[in-house]
Every structure is written in structure tokens, then in C-alpha cells.
Design a protein around this nucleic acid. Structure first.
Lengths: 341, 341
DNA sequence: TTGTAGGCGTTATCAT
DNA sequence: ATGATAACGCCTACAA
């Protein structure tokens, strides 16, 4: 085996290129490229030679160069408001897993809850020429829509529903969830409601769904307190405290997330109120603890994992030129009745 | 304003390049590049011209090309065992935030808990020519060490501690944490211990720390049950059930995470055991709910956010050629005593 | 099945 | 302060 990769003067060893591998294998760079990317169209013996040469040289492909030439980056950019949020993180993990299986890497960007930041991030992202983009939600600045559409990059919006997506969509209706919660609680006989709610856009739509439905029944009262993002147990406790301070009567508490619900239950208990005897409680998300809490927490279950899987698959399909049966998937939701209501 | 970007035949509009901007501005591509990247060394009037031309053409830089030419990708690859883990996710979010402030994007990869997968992922990652890499833990395959070191890319290991890091390290000692927990519980008078533990490597080191310290006291008994990853509330409940089924006596339960501890407390309560009266409980992580649970949960607090911030800053500093005061940061930990023990 | 030529869009370097 | 030229490492397209 002959000397390879002789250090240039005193500097770092330049990392080997296709050409170095080709020289080592006694082939042309193009053949090496084919052996690596489309081995089916290369003679088996040649592929073997290339493999050996790759091992000898320690070759690592350069996707910057590859992407520049082929106009395929094998990169998917994912934009979420936050990662450390029990709801999104499962979808992100599912996305990451499924994209990896399909041969893509995930560029993850955190946008917070403002359109402005999202717009900036998308602009920055596009300069990496991703093969696809995943956005959380359907609310975007006009500028961002313009930019992203004119870039021609396939887009998936997740976690919400609209008849007019940018491109592909995998989500569910927050308004229907609100309606469903209201209907269920009303059917159970609750009439005097307290709401503990965070203020991101999707939560607000759910709230509207709850309130609209309750108003349509005409026999219920609703008081609302707003808590900061992110939803935490302590904010749930505070929220219930604030509701009670309003000196109103409640027979049920509806929370914009299970975490808040858990906090509300703890606070209720600390104040001598029993759930569900004195107060019915329902949350949203069906997080792990909801089932095992004492009392267990009624909630809305979303298949968060599926959101990620479906988004990844549809995006990859579209990128690879496959026809999509549908561009919008409503993955729905399920109300889970438990001890707290 | 004259016509620009005339569609080529019937196909897609080719996205504008530096050259298009240069033509629009009446400058050379190189000057446009400078105006965009190092405006300080370009005449202000020229920068203005370029800005206008960029707006007119809708130019979006191509970082694939830029990175190829400059050998800087402004990309940091982050490898974690899982994202949907309450411990890591905060560090990842902090990393993402801080890297963004420093002008880097984050490529996020999920490796699971096996060295093999980590090795594959790192190989794949290197083909994107990241400016830096963040790895979780200090346990890596020899092959991966070889690959990553010979690539010359700066590396930060997080969430663990060793005198011999690959490069930079931001973490804390799991063994010391184990020792500390044992010492604290022993001091509180507990002697008959049940452990509910997950089996990832770092948790195992903490367990060893607990058991070694308890053995050194010589007057304590220890029984252990192992639960699957990820740690969930229900596995904490099951874990306590299994411990009790062993027909041993316990006065304290030590859990490898707060989530398991919360589950154990619930199960204890369901079986008529009061915490801490009949059973002391301590967890790990100081997750949000630990403080507000009833009873509140004693635990070990780690500044997870700081891990991410420091890792991002040290990596960016190193990439940008700044001297690092130290290559290893032990961010330490704190035992927080609460009602459960 | 393999090879050759040229270009992808940018920046480093040297010149003006 | 600005421009010209030559890489950067790979792939498309065509040729053999």
C-alpha cells in the first residue's frame, strides 16, 4: 500500500476527496461517485475496489459540494415554537427518527411564538437549500409565505388545520377540540366554568371553541385566567388560586394543558377541594402523567408521534417525486374520560 | 426597473445568484459578496446599492456554495440519545438558542443509547462539514473517536465528567451525585433502601455511587429493580410494586429520576403507605413538578440550561479561534431537600 | 460499464 | 475600495 495523504508542508492534513479515492482505486472520480451513490449501476468488483480505497484513504464525502452540484441537500428544516414543550417534543422526535430512516438530516430551529422571528428563521434556513421544511402552525407572516412559496421548497405545516395550507398539512382542529370539551363537560352536568389558559395562538383557538359552545348552550358561566408560557405545574396552581380569588362559583375547571390541570388539582387539594367531587377538571394533551395521576386526569389525546411520522413521510414522498394521495391529513383527537371529571 | 429573472423556457425560475445581484447593482460578484458578509470594508454607498439589488432580485445566499468555498458551514451538529427526555431537552433548547445568537444553526441527531448508532451518525454528520459537534456523554466507540479526532472538528461532550475528554467538556459527576444521595439519606437515618432505576450508562454510574457509599457505611440494605427507558410515571409505580413484591422491608426509595419518584409516591399512596412517614423518597433532576408535587420531592438539581449555554459558547469560541480558559467545566449539582425525605 | 468536460454558487487571493 | 481569476469537491450530461 503506497503512501497517501502526505501532509502539505507543516499544516493540517487536507481531507481526502473523491479524486484521492479514485487515484487509490485506479478509477475515475465519477466511477467512484457512482459506486458510492448508485452501486447498482456499477460492476460489483468495481464497487469492492472503491470500498477498499475509501477505507484506505479515510474518505468522508462532502455534502456541501455534493449538494451544490446535485441541488439536493438531504436536509429537512424543522421550525417549532419551543422544544422543551411536552407536546411538540414527541412530534419532533418522531420526525427526526422517520427522516433519518428516509435518509434525511434534521435542522432544528426554535422560533418562539412570534411570526417575526419565524420569518427571519425561514429566510436564514433557505440559504441552506433544504429539500423540505416543516413549520408548526398555520399562522405565518405574508412576507414569509411569499418567500417560502417562491423558493419552491416543499412545506409541511403541522399541529393545526386549515382548508388552505401552504402545501402539505398534518394536524387537527383546535376549534373542534374546544367544542368537544365544552360539550362533554356540559353533558356531565357542569355549568359554572373556570378556565386556566396559556396564550399561544392554537390554545386561543381551543378556548374560543370551548366558549362558543358553552355560549350556545346558554345556561353556563365562564371565567378565564391567563397564565404565561410555558405551561407549568406551578402556573396551574396559581391559575386556580386566581380563579378562586375572583369570588365566583365553579363546578369545573378546564385547562389548556394537562400540566396546568395537574397543578390545578394539586392546588384544589391544598385548599380542601376534592376533585372531582367539588370540582371537575379536564386538561389537554394526554401527557404521560395524566393517566397515573391521582385522580387520573380527563383530557384530549393527540397522536403526537403520528404527526411527526406522517409529516416526514409525506415530505419525503413529495421530495422524491411520488404522488401524494392527499395534501391534508386530519389526524383527529380523542376525548379520554378519567376520574377528574 | 427592468425585467429580471426571466423564466427559462417553461421550467421553474432559477433562483438568483450573486452574479444576478451584481448585474442588477452594476458591481462585481465579489463586491456584492463583501457587501453582504463584511460590509465594514465596503463603501457605505456601495452597500446600499447591493441591498437594493438584493431586494429587487429576491436573492437568497447559497450556504452550500459558500461553505464549500470558505470551509465554514456555520453548522453545529448535536447528538443526543433522545429528545423527548425531560433532562436533555432543556439543554438542547439552550444550545439551540445560544447557537442561534452566535450565528450557527443546529443539526439535531438522535442516537439512542448505543455506541454503534452514535458512530454511524457521527460519520454521516461529518459529511456536512459541521464547524463543531456536541456529543452527549463520554462513552464512545474507539472507531468513532478515531473518526472524529482525525476530522479535526471541535467537539464538546456534555452531561458527564472525565479527566480525559475528547476535546471540550461541560458536565458533572454522576458518581459524586450517587455518593451525595447516599450520604444524605443515610444521614437522615434511612437504612433499608429500595432503588428504582433505569439502565442507561450515566444512571448506572449514579447507582454505583449510591451503592458504593451505602456499602461503606456497612449498616444498610439495598434492593434494586430495573425499569425500561424512558422513565415514566407508570414505570415508577410498577417499580415500587416490584420492590414491595420482593418481600423486603424498606424505609427509603431512591429513584434514578424525579418521574420515577413521582410514580413511586403515587403507588405508595395507593397502597396506603405515606411519604415520608412510612417511606422516604428521593429523585433526580429537579424537574418542574418535583417542587409542587404533594409531597414535594427531594432531588438533585442540575443547571440543565447552563450546560447548553456553556457548551454553545465554548464551542463557538473555539471555532472562532478564541483561547479557552479551560476545556473542562464541571457545572456541579445541588441536593434539594423537600418533603419526601 | 466507465470516462471526460463543464458547471453548481461562492470565497480566497492577488491585482488594480 | 473594487475587480479578475481560480479554486472548493462533487454531479449532470454526454461520450466512448
Amino acid at each position: 500500500m503506497k503512501a497517501k495523504n502526505v501532509p502539505q508542508g507543516s499544516g493540517k492534513v487536507k481531507s481526502p476527496t473523491l479524486e484521492d479515492v479514485a487515484r487509490e482505486a485506479g478509477l475515475s472520480p465519477m466511477t467512484v461517485s457512482r459506486a458510492l451513490n448508485t452501486p447498482q449501476i456499477v460492476r460489483a468488483a468495481t464497487v469492492e475496489k472503491v470500498k477498499k480505497a475509501v477505507a484506505v484513504t479515510g474518505y468522508i464525502p462532502n455534502l456541501l459540494a455534493g449538494g451544490l452540484a446535485s441541488k439536493k441537500s438531504k436536509l429537512i428544516a424543522v421550525v417549532v415554537p419551543q422544544i422543551n414543550n411536552n407536546m411538540f417534543v414527541d412530534s419532533v422526535q418522531a420526525l427526526s427518527d422517520q427522516l433519518a430512516k428516509r435518509g434525511y438530516h434534521m435542522l432544528l430551529c426554535v422560533s418562539g411564538y412570534t411570526e417575526e422571528v419565524e420569518t427571519e428563521i425561514v429566510s436564514a434556513i433557505l440559504s441552506r437549500r433544504p429539500d423540505g421544511i416543516v413549520l408548526t402552525g398555520i399562522q405565518h407572516s405574508p412576507e414569509m409565505k411569499r418567500i417560502i412559496l417562491s423558493s419552491g421548497v416543499p412545506v409541511v405545516e403541522i399541529w393545526d388545520l386549515t382548508p388552505t395550507p401552504l402545501d402539505i398539512l398534518v394536524g387537527f382542529s383546535h376549534e373542534k377540540i374546544g367544542n368537544k370539551i365544552a360539550q362533554y363537560m356540559h353533558d356531565k352536568g357542569y355549568r359554572k366554568f373556570g378556565l386556566i389558559w396559556t396564550e399561544d395562538r392554537r390554545a386561543s383557538v381551543r378556548k374560543k371553541g370551548v366558549i362558543d359552545a358553552l355560549e350556545s348552550y346558554g345556561d353556563s358561566t365562564v371565567a378565564t385566567v391567563t397564565v404565561e408560557l410555558p405551561a407549568t405545574l406551578s402556573r396551574g396552581r396559581q391559575g386556580l388560586g386566581q380563579l378562586l380569588d375572583l369570588n365566583q362559583q365553579y363546578d369545573a375547571i378546564i385547562c389548556s394543558s394537562d400540566t396546568l390541570a395537574q397543578g390545578a388539582i394539586i392546588e384544589a387539594s391544598a385548599r380542601g377541594l376534592s376533585v372531582p367531587r367539588n370540582l371537575g377538571v379536564i386538561g389537554f394533551g394526554n401527557l404521560d402523567f395524566a393517566q397515573h395521576n391521582v385522580p387520573s386526569i380527563s383530557t384530549i389525546s393527540i397522536d403526537r408521534w403520528r404527526v411527526g411520522i406522517d409529516a416526514a413521510n409525506m415530505l419525503a414522498d413529495k421530495i422524491e417525486g411520488k404522488e401524494l394521495a392527499e395534501h391534508v391529513i386530519d389526524i383527529g383527537f380523542e376525548l379520554i374520560e378519567r376520574e377528574s371529571s
